[in-house]
Simulated assay, not measured.
Amino acid sequence: MMRKTPVDLLIFDLDGTLIESKWDIARSVNLTLAELGLPERSLEEIFGFVGDGVKRLLRLAVGEAHEDRYEQALKVFRGHYLEHCLDRTVFYPGIEPMLRHFAGKEKAVATNKSIEYTRVILDGLGAHHFPVVVGGDNGFGLKPEPGMLLHIMKQVGAAPERTVLIGDSTNDINGGHNAGIRVCAVGYGMGNRAKMEACQPEWFIERPEQLMEIFE
C-alpha cells in the first residue's frame, strides 16, 4: 500500500479542478460577441482560452481584428456571466465527499478568475470549505506567478513542504513549483495532458477521490 503524504494545506484551482464551468463560460462569451455584432467562437476555441483570467479570455475571444471592442466586451461579458454563471456549473463528481474527508485540513482556492465571479459561484454552490479564497484580481498576480500561493500559505501559516496545489493547467503546475510547493495535476479538467505532464507535477490523478488515497 502506498504511503500517504502528510499535508496541512490543500490549495485548489477553481475552473476545471473543483467546478465544471466551461459551458457557462462559453455561453457568456458567445452572448457577449453576439451583442457586440462580432463572430461567435466554437466551444473548443473558448475552452482553450480559459485559464489566464477574464481579461485574456475576452481579448482572445474578441480577436486582434476587433481589439478596439475589448473594453466594451469586458463590461458586456460581466453582465452575461453574472446572469449565467450558475446555469450549468457544478462541482465535479467526487469533489464534495473529498472535501468532507479533508474537513480537518486547511483548504483554500487560488484562481486566475475574477474574485467577483469566484465568490458568486462558490456561494451559489453552497461551498463553505474554503476560509481563504484568492482571485486573479486580488493584487497577488496570476498563476504561474507564485504571489497568490505565497499569500495563502502566509495567511494560513502553512509551510511549503506541508502544502499541495491541485490544478488542471500548466499555470497551476508552474505556479506551484514557483512557490516551492508540490503539485497534483488533474486529468478530468480542461487542461492539456501532454503539456501538463511536460511540467512534471509530482502526482497526476483522474478522479478527485484519489486525493484521499495520496494525502493525509
Rank of each mutant, 00 (worst) to 15 (best):
R27Y: 12
D123E: 15
V120W: 00
G157N: 09
M148S: 14
R193T: 14
E206Q: 13
V120F: 06
V76I: 14
L43E: 13
A185F: 04
S28K: 07
E116K: 10
R27A: 12
K22Q: 13
F130V: 06
F102W: 09
G141L: 04
G176Q: 03
G180P: 01
T163G: 08
G126Y: 11
N192M: 02
V156R: 06
R78P: 02
P97Y: 10
K55N: 12
N178K: 14
A34R: 14
M190A: 09
L165F: 15
V62Q: 06
F47K: 13
S114E: 13
V133I: 15
I181W: 05
V62S: 00
G48K: 02
A179R: 03
L150Q: 11
G135C: 02
N171E: 01
M148N: 06
I11S: 07
F77Q: 02
D52I: 07
L36W: 10
K113S: 06
A158I: 10
T89I: 08
T170M: 02
Q72G: 00
F12E: 00
A34K: 14
I205E: 03
E83I: 03
A127C: 14
A65D: 13
C85W: 04
D8S: 11
K4S: 03
C199H: 01
L142D: 03
N192V: 12
H80S: 05
E145D: 11
H84K: 03
E71W: 11
R182C: 01
E213N: 11
H66R: 15
D87K: 11
I11L: 08
L33M: 09
E116Q: 12
I11E: 07
H128D: 13
A108L: 05
P131K: 13
L165D: 00
F12L: 03
G139P: 01
A198S: 15
G139V: 08
E202H: 11
P131H: 12
E20A: 15
I11D: 03
P208A: 14
V76H: 10
A73G: 08
F91R: 01
G51A: 04
G191W: 08
F91G: 08
F12M: 00
S21G: 11
K154T: 14
G135T: 05
G180D: 06
M190E: 04
Y92I: 00
K107V: 05
L18P: 04
S114N: 12
Q210N: 02
I121C: 00
V109G: 04
R88T: 13
S42L: 05
D123N: 14
R56Y: 01
G79K: 06
W203L: 00
E106P: 09
M212A: 14
D87A: 10
R100A: 15
P131W: 10
G187C: 07
N30G: 01
E20T: 12
G79S: 07
A34H: 11
F215S: 01
I25L: 12
T170S: 08
W203R: 10
L142V: 09
M190C: 05
H177R: 15
Y188P: 05
T32W: 02
R41H: 00
E44G: 06
R69L: 03
K195W: 06
E20V: 11
L150I: 14
A108C: 00
V62A: 07
A127N: 05
M190W: 14
L10I: 15
F130C: 02
G135F: 09
V62R: 02
D123P: 07
G104L: 09
L86G: 02
V132A: 06
E116R: 12
T118H: 04
N171Y: 15
G63T: 12
A194L: 13
